[in-house]
Simulated assay, not measured.
Amino acid sequence: MYNVAYFELFDNAMNNWLMARGMLAQNGPEPIPVVAEASCSYLREVSYPDIVEIGMRVTHMGNSSFKLTLGMFRAGEDLAAAQADFTMVFVAPDTHKPRPAPPHYRAELAKLVIPEDSTAAP
């Protein structure tokens, strides 16, 4: 699989989760999360027609930012094929200046919090 495809799959999983919780409403009054930094580690080959599963966790929560770590697994396997890290910053939708995360967003993100030094896979 071409490297950019990994990012597309990670981005889709992340955005679907955020959209389902109302965090990507571009025209609303609440802050939206934007990617400030992204990286990917390619650990094992994934190729067509592999079916993949993506797990996600929050490894850091700040006032206006958070870090997501996502793991890509071949369906039914325990070893990650790739891991991506996204640092997200909440910004005002009109000015794109950093803003604190609203309490209800923080509550949703808290459901995914697992410390970075945990042995649990994303």
Rank of each mutant, 00 (worst) to 15 (best):
I54T: 09
A92R: 08
Y48D: 11
H96V: 10
N63A: 11
L70E: 02
D78M: 15
L68V: 01
E45I: 12
Y105I: 12
V89P: 07
P49W: 10
A84V: 02
T95E: 14
P93Q: 02
A81P: 01
T95H: 10
E116G: 14
M88V: 04
F86I: 01
G71L: 07
P98A: 00
S65A: 07
A84E: 05
S64F: 00
E45S: 15
H60V: 03
I51K: 15
F66M: 07
G62S: 02
T95F: 11
E116D: 15
E116N: 13
R99C: 04
A84I: 03
M88W: 03
D94I: 06
E77H: 13
D117F: 11
G76R: 07
K111H: 09
A110D: 11
D50L: 12
A92N: 07
F66C: 06
N63I: 06
Q83L: 05
N63S: 11
Y48A: 11
E116Q: 13
D85F: 04
L68F: 02
I54G: 08
E77F: 11
E116M: 14
R57D: 05
G55Y: 10
A101R: 01
L109W: 05
F90G: 00
Y105L: 13
A92I: 09
F86Y: 09
A101Y: 00
T69M: 04
I51D: 15
K67M: 08
R106Y: 02
D85W: 01
F86Q: 04
A110V: 12
D117W: 14
Y48E: 15
T95N: 12
A81W: 12
D94C: 05
L109F: 06
M88Y: 01
V89S: 04
F86E: 02
V89Q: 08
R57V: 01
V91F: 09
I114A: 01
T69H: 01
L68S: 05
S47A: 15
V52F: 15
L68Y: 02
E53V: 11
A92S: 14
R106M: 02
K111M: 04
A75R: 13
H104T: 03
P115V: 06
G76P: 13
M88N: 08
V46E: 05
D94M: 13
Y48H: 15
Q83M: 11
P115A: 02
A75E: 10
F90V: 00
V89D: 01
D78V: 14
F90M: 03
T95A: 09
E108P: 09
A82S: 08
I114V: 07
S65D: 01
I114T: 08
T87V: 02
P103Y: 06
T59L: 00
I54P: 03
R99K: 04
L68T: 00
A75M: 15
P93Y: 10
E77G: 09
E116H: 12
R57M: 10
